[in-house]
Structure formats: C-alpha cells, structure tokens
Design a protein around this nucleic acid. Sequence first.
DNA 1: GAGTTTGAAACT
DNA 2: CAGTTTCAAACTC
Length: 812
Amino acid sequence: MDVVSPELDSLLPDEIMDTEAIEEVPHSQSEPTHDTPVPMETDAPVTSESLNICSNAASAERVQAVITPASADSAPGSQSSVTISASSTLFTIKPALATSTAATKTTDSLTGTTVSTSGTQKLVTPFAFSAANHQIILNKVASAQATEAAKAASTQVIKQEGQKLLVTTIGKSGQPIVLQLPHTGSKPGVSQTSGDAKSPTPQFKVVTIGGRELKPVVGSAGNQVTTLQAQQLKTVQIPKKTPASSTAPIKFIITKTVNSKGLSPQTSVTPVIAGRVVTQTSPAMSPKTITLSEPHNTAIQSIPGKKIAISPLKTPSKVTVVSVASPPSNTSQKSVALPVSVALGQQILAVQQSAPASPVKVATSQTTAQNIKPVQSVTVGGVGGSQFKTIIPLATQPNVQQIQVPGSRFHYVRLVTATTASAAGQPSAPNTSSVPTGKPLVVNTGAVRMSVPVVQAQTMKQVKQTLYGSLDSGAVYVAPKPLTSTPQVVTTTQTQQRLIMPATPLPQIQPNFTNLPPGTVLTSAPGGSNVGYAVVPAQYVTQLQQSQFVTLASSSSFPASSSIQTQAKLPYNGVSAAETTSRPRKPCNCTKSQCLKLYCDCFANGEFCNNCNCNNCFNNLEHETERLKAIKTCLDRNPEAFKPKIGKGKEGESDRRHSKGCNCKRSGCLKNYCECYEAKIMCSSICKCIGCKNFEESPERKTLMHLADAAEVRVQQQTAAKTKLSSQISDLLMRTTPIISSGGGRLPYTFVTKEVLEATCECLLEQAKRAEQTRQPQAEAERVILEEFGHCLMSIISSAGKAKTDCASINC
DNA sequence: GAGTTTGAAACT
DNA sequence: CAGTTTCAAACTC
C-alpha cells in the first residue's frame, strides 16, 4: 500500500489536519511558523515521490524540474517525478491561514486533496485552469498579508514570464515559490538555469532550503530541484496546457498553517529530512525556499530513547498530492495523477487529469539517511482526523470520481452530472472515452466557487487502491446530480464513471464547510442555479464503485439508498482486510441514540453507519432528513462538534493535544475511557482530569506503555509462530492427505506394526548400548536415543507414504 | 457474553 | 455554567 509521504503531507494545510491550528497560528506575518510534524510511528521516510499534475491540454509545452539528491549517499534510483500540468486554472491549496482566525475558518471551506500512490504508479493530475497566466502558487505564508504579497508578486511574474507556478512557503514571510510554467510554444524539457528570469523557455526554478539554489543536475530538465542533505526530493512538472479561452491566471496556492513548536526554520533542520525547496527563477522574486517535505520527523527520530506518542488520527508531517489518471505509459516514473479540488476562501481549485500527452515533468529524487520507501504519493488534502472536504456542485458538476486521500477521512468522488447522466443512463460505455479530459468545472455559487476535477475512472481506481492502506475512515463529499433530474440507473464498470449521490437541499446549513459533516447538503448561493452539495461517507462511494449497478436516485427521494445499504456489509471502505492496512473503525453499537448523536462514533466522525451493530439506526441515506437535522442540532450546540478533537497545542506544548481536554476522575487517564490516552497523547493543561497519570514522566504511564509494547511484541511473535506452525501442518497434510484418503486410516499408525515396533526398539536399544559402551553421559545417551527415534519415525512415515502411494497408483 | 465502570454528550 | 442524566464504549469477570 502506498503511504502518504510525510514530506508531501507537510504541504497540506494544517486546517485539514487540524482545525485548531488556525487559531494557534501567530498572526504576525514576519513571524515564521514552523512545521512541527509528529511522525507516525509507522511512517517511514519516503525516498522518492512523484507528483504529476497535468492539465489536459495537449500542448507540448513542458516544464521540467529535476530534483536530485544533494547528498552523496543518496540512494540511486530513488528519483521520482512530479508532474503538474495545468491549463489555465486557479488552483489554490490553502491550509489554514496563520493570520486569520474565526473569519478564516468560515471562509476556508476546502483545503486540498491528498492522494498517495504507490511508487509503481505514475500520477498525472491535470489541471483545468482557465486563467491565461499559468501559475501555480504554493503559498505557505503564515499571514494573509503574505499571501496577498505572494499573489501580487506572482502577478508581476505572470506578466513578465507568463505561466508560472508560484509557491510560497508557509510561515516563510510570505515569499512565494513560483513554479513557472512554460510559455506556449516552448518545448518541454528545456533546461535553464534558475534565476534567469528572462530566458524564453519555461522554467521551474528550484530553491533549496535556506534560499540556496540547486544546481541543475539533468541537462534536459528545465529546472532542477535538489534536496539538501538527507532531504527527500520531489520534482514537480507542470506541463502547460494551452488555454483555449481562459483569461484568469492560473494559480496554485498552498497556504499552510504551521504548527510551530519552536523548531528552527528549515535551514537549520536536522539532516535527516531537510525538506524540499523550490527555487524560483523569476527575477521579480528573490529565490525563496519552499519545503515540500517536512524536516520535523528527523529531529524527533534522532532522539534516542525518546518515545513519541503518535496518534493515528493525524500525521502532520505528511503531505502528498495526488494522482490522477495517468496512463501506464511512463512506468519508469512513479507517479500518480489525481484531481485536486481545493477551496481557498472563496476560491476553489481543481486539478484535473489531463492527457499525458504533454506532461510537465518534475523529477524528484530524495535523499535520506532513513529507510527509503519506494512509495510515491501525491497528496492534496488533509490528514486523518481532519475535516477535509471536497465540495462539488450538484447541478453543474461534471463527472466526478472518487479519490481517496491517505490519512484523510474523506474521499473525493467524481460524480456524473445530470447532463452527463443521460449518457450514463445507458449501460455505459467506458468512461475513458466519454469523459472529456475535462476541465474542472468552476461554479460560482455565490460565496464559493467550486471546481470539479474530472478524472478517468480507471485512474481513480488505481489511486484508490493505492490509497486505501493509509486511509482512516473516509467521508466522501459527493455532488449529487441535479435535483430536477429523474432517477436513473447506471451500469457502472470499473472503467466507467461512477455514481451519483442524491442530495437534498439543506438551506439551514451555511456553507461553513469546515464544520459540516459528511452527508451535509449545501445549497447554492441565492440566485444560483439549482446546485447542492452533499457529503457522503466514503464507504458508500466505495460500495457503489464496486457495484456493477448503481441506482441513481432523484433528489426528492433516495431510491438508491436501499441498494446502497444492501452493500453495507462490504469490507470497510470497500477494501478487504487483505487489501488495506488501515484500521477499520469499530462498528458502533448504539441502541438509543439512533446514531444521530455524538455518542455514536460513526456520526461523530461524520460517517454513515456501515457494518455496525446499531439498532434503529438513522445514520444512513435513508434517513437523510433526520440526519441532517441532527447534524444541524449538533452544530448549533457546538460548532466544533465535527472537528477533530485532537489538535495542536499552543506554543511550547505538545504538538497534539485534546482540543477540550479530558475530565477523567477515576481512570487516572490511563485507560481508554480517557480521550487523551485513547488518542495516545498526554493530558495537557486544559484537561480537568483528577488524579491524572497521563503525563510524560508518569511511571504508571511508562509502565503501561512498556507493557503495551511487550504485549504487542508477544502478539506478533505468536502470530508469526502460528502462521509458521499452520504452514507446516498444512504442508504435512498436503503430503499425507492423499494417502490417508486412499487408505482410510491415519498413515503412520497404520504402518506401526509389531515388526516395525520391534525394529524401532532394536534401533533404540542399539543406540543405548553404544552410548553405554562409549560411556556417554546420560544426557548424551538420551539425546542419541531420541535422535534415533526421530529417524525411525521418519522412516516409518516415509515408508508408509511410499507404500500408500504405490498402492494408490495401482488402485488398491 | 453479561454486567460494571467510565466519561463524554446531552439535558436541565 | 454547573449539576444531572443519558449514552455507548471500555472494561471486568
């Protein structure tokens, strides 16, 4: 399974991972924020990653950046490429703005999409940008001002150089990193030295951490990115799509709220993983360092004997962008193409898959002292536990396919719009042909513009399969078909476009997407078309994807619900235990709450009940009305109700802490009753617990952890032993079974006749005599005798087997 | 598997 | 906001 690379994860907005981070971020623009990723224990450094974001444009223009490991000890072949091609589109990945507080929360509905892919896959993520200026801005500026500055800077750059990918580091005083896209007509693969702003060829400028520029390694590559020290390298290719009618500049803005835990800036990052830096060539901006990877892990890992409690809920160090449909053609490069939809404030970015014809190539190589995983992943979006959502307009949305984001609870789904439904209504043809290499559909719903990525189903499937492993429970935000559409039945295949989820308008709920749980239906802005948004649990999408027949329900009712529900017994997230390493969420056992209160973990996590043991469950599509009402009630009671409880602590405190703190009185906070302990985090100052023993130096806690570790080891050993024993028994049975079946008796014993016993005894006696004669110690004598017995036994078995075989061969 | 304990959520 | 009740998960036997 693919694992979201921690480095990529670092690019993700904190908002995705932790909504609380928004509030925690310092407002000062000048104050640099530092990512303080808490590495998952299971996280291994990813040596190579590919990010392909390709526009569907057929333009041959290509921007290629190659990142090579700076360190000499870099593992060869670990290079991976990231390709980002965009045709004029505004793509913004905005993690929580450090400067904005509550206002930011309300405006930022979407943060990004995360997709991780296996190293064997190539990801191509097309961007459908309508903007004339081709820019992708990765803005990690901690303050809104910085963001604005970055935008302004990027604008200048755009005028000067045209297509660019602007990337700014988070908390890096707002200096943007601009990934420059090639001008139209420019040929891909043209290498240029960074810093040459006026070079006619499209460029990717790579800036190392600390603003150092990397020297080009590959001559063919336009720009080179070099990882410093043990940094992991990433290459981002941004093929330019010839904008047909786009006028707006293409921007790719990634703003991330940094969890500052006193970590030094990237320049002083420990050598394990320094991060990726992209240097910009545009003269308008001084080269800025952008860290695509997170340096944090290393520091933590470097501490010997330091045990870090890591909660599976969050992996802040991961940022991966991901894959969309990329043909297997270029298998050498590991990449995944995926559509990315991100909303920044009122901007929503969409990355669509484009034809691989004009790949923008970014080669990334990673150098790390750590274990290298051949895992490549592209992640756009959140991490587990984050309220990370993709919203798709109901009415206008084109085809939508599911994308699963590793580590994220949410899945992204591509749906079929009513317009496309007509085509889909027929037992469909493979959508590969039917899907217009589509540009993201940007819909202005008043407050929010939304874009819908279009990806080939086949690709999405690959991505999904790749991503399942790292997924937590997922919720899928699905854009249902238009409300006016009639129920349709669509036959889907693996390659076809998939489901349409019904949705009903819920005017009561404002588009504060960060607070909305899956299943929420958003209405369009006043005056807007009949557009709604639905949030649907991931498992439903998965179930539907696996289903050969998908019933499309009308907006008024949910005829599809029954069919969906019937598939609720599918493995979690539609993936069997063998297919996924993710831990399935426990089924609930609610009896009185109808699974519509926060008592229900499913509901609290924004998921539909699936495979649960609950009674009188209303947490499903069949009771969408009640469910929505319950959601609203919960939100009225507590707007943070559906936000992750485990967030980032204040400066100087632990990276992760419970947002409200626990109130334990009797458990000592050392049992799973305690939410802090359950999340494997220490209690913090905000906890109101009594007799807390869940703190760093607590001997009880240490003992418990030690015991837990020991128990885990024992379990693993036992499992291994059982597996081995089972294998041996199975092997033995395989050899003896035919004989047994033919002879009707248990082989060895049927051949232990009196003669055989006598012979065996003689052999044993002989060994005893020898031992006695040679005056061997008793222990040695016993050993020899036992060995002889073993030999005898083996001979008996062998002979018996041979005899039976011979007998069977002659039909006896 | 039944019963108990626990603390968050819901309610007053 | 504090106290109480409800609830479902965690835990024990």
